[in-house]
Write a protein that binds this DNA or RNA. Structure first.
Lengths: 132, 132
DNA sequence: TTTAAACTCTCCTCCTACAGGAGGGTAAAG
DNA sequence: CTTTACCCTCCTGTAGGAGGAGAGTTTAAA
């Protein structure tokens, strides 16, 4: 199938699919006359796999690994699980960072009148020298 | 003071400070003979302000706005608070997205034996066609 | 005084994961 | 035969810098 159909069926954009071809994460057959890419069912399956893995916040490099495991019927599930647990740990780190951030900002916002007076605890906090 | 000292005192890297100068978010005086940038105390204060605002996840464009308000003694705190509340809302969105992600990944990781057998619920989920 | 280390400068490329658009070829429908 | 909808490559831009080359400057030690 052509790239447009592959894009629709995988939920990716044509640009994205073309990009994945360019960086070699998938390798559809190319028609020598027209230069059109031709995606097989297996190519499509990989694109759908990629779309989902990207939604799970796996980087394209992670996806390369996952895809290699996906294609290898002899793989052990150990590696996949390790990669997943690593990703979960990353997410946890990010979550706690964001939560701290939210609390600090929330505290500042609460303290700020938000009126027309120039006094503003938010800017005060940002310009405080002692707090880093 | 030179860029190195300004960087240390603001907790930024020299590269970052130079970048901020390049994009005009700060404008230190430049020595015409040597080309060396010369940072005043006020420049330093702005760099420290920027370092903190960046930690609070404000984009450099946000920082431009905040800095303008910071420099304007006649500003009202309303604008600053609005910007902050907007940022909090962004963080909330990101938080819930990440939490959903974590749950899904966690569910998959739990279901996966993580042994040497090829069977792997994680890859199964990623390659499921019906689930999008 | 010379020299070596430490600092600074500009300019260049690279990173992630694409998006947007120019300029042109191709395919299918009317 | 023409229109419209695809498809192609190539170039640039995004955010926020990092890394490094090659060259000038300053400072401290020998």
């Amino acid at each position: 199938m052509n790239i447009g159909k592959a894009a629709v069926l995988s939920g990716l954009t044509v640009k994205t699919v073309r990009y994945y071809s360019d960086i070699g994460i998938i390798s559809p057959h190319v028609n020598n006359n027209t230069g059109y890419r031709d995606f097989s069912e297996f190519d499509l399956a990989k694109l759908q796999f990629l779309a989902k893995a990207r939604k799970f916040d796996f980087s394209l490099d992670d996806c390369r690994d996952l895809l290699a495991l996906y294609e290898n019927k002899e793989r052990s599930s150990k590696e996949v699980k390790a990669l997943t647990l690593e990703k979960i740990a990353e997410i946890d780190t990010k979550l706690s960072e964001l939560q701290m951030l939210r609390e600090q900002l929330s505290t500042l916002a609460t303290a700020c009148h938000g009126d027309n007076r120039p006094n503003c605890p938010i800017l005060d906090a940002l310009s405080e020298k002692t707090y880093q």
